[in-house]
């Protein structure tokens, strides 16, 4: 079976599979890193074919229509990867000077192979919670002043959160404000970069997170805070 699917890599890269085969092939890809790499390489070749179609200047109304729809279309959450436990959170918190509050939420972040319909349902549930959180952020946000100016506003609903950085101080040349989610018993997770002084972030699954934080980082962000983060209990 696997070998049979493997032989479909070229047809898959050309979008030339029958619908039921596409589903089986994609399920296979989820568990086969070599196959993913091969299809990615073949898709690069197929994209060269696409480039040979040239360019056609789109009419201005197309741009207007796309941008209008973008303004009311939610993005999918990034793929959440399970967090490796390293240091106990208290040890990390002791190192952080500006701890404000910490709270414990129940669930664990687990993204493993699930059936596609499970995944879709889960994403839909996350989207509902994000909608709720966004609505709460509009009506009754939690607002905390940032030490360097501006504020952090957030709302949570059922393990999802919407966070806004509003009117923050300039992070400085070549620097950016970065958002972190801090899980119980783990290191802060990079959770978004503020483009400038304002940003809005959708966090679909806080998992076992206990707090969020903001720190000043080199532009492009860091994997771990390199300056003392401002920590807020959710």
């Amino acid at each position: 079976m696997a070998e049979d699917l493997h032989s479909l890599a070229g047809a898959a890269a050309l979008d030339a599979l029958e619908p039921d085969e596409r589903a089986a092939f994609e399920a296979h890809l989820a568990s086969c890193a070599d196959c993913r790499a091969e299809v990615a390489a073949l898709q690069e070749a197929a994209a060269q074919l696409a480039l040979s179609a040239g360019s056609i200047a789109p009419p201005p109304r197309l741009r207007a229509a796309v941008l209008e729809r973008v303004g009311r279309t939610r993005q999918v959450p990034p793929v959440v990867t399970p967090l490796r436990r390293r240091r106990p959170v208290l040890q990390w918190l002791a190192a952080a000077a500006a701890v404000v509050l910490v709270l414990a939420l129940g669930t664990t972040v687990v993204v493993q192979q699930q059936s596609i319909s499970d995944k879709t349902q889960r994403i839909e549930a996350q989207e509902r919670r994000l909608d709720e959180a966004a609505e709460l952020l509009r009506t009754t946000p939690q607002v905390v002043a940032l030490p360097s100016g501006g504020e952090l506003a957030y709302a949570t609903a059922g393990g999802a959160a919407v966070v806004e950085v509003r009117d923050a101080a300039s992070p400085g040349a070549g620097r950016q404000w970065e958002l972190w989610v801090i899980p119980a018993g783990g290191d802060p997770r990079p959770s978004g970069l503020v483009p400038g002084t304002d940003g809005r972030f959708f966090l679909p699954d806080l998992g076992d997170a206990t707090a969020i934080a903001v720190s000043n980082e080199p532009a492009g962000g860091s994997q771990q805070p390199t300056t003392t983060p401002f920590v807020v209990q959710l």
Binding site: S7, A9, G10, A11, A13, L14, A16, A41, L42, E44, A45, A46, Q48, L49
Partner: peptide, 11 residues
Amino acid sequence: ARMRDGLIRLR
């Protein structure tokens, strides 16, 4: 097979 090896050759 030709789709796959053709794409590889193209690349």
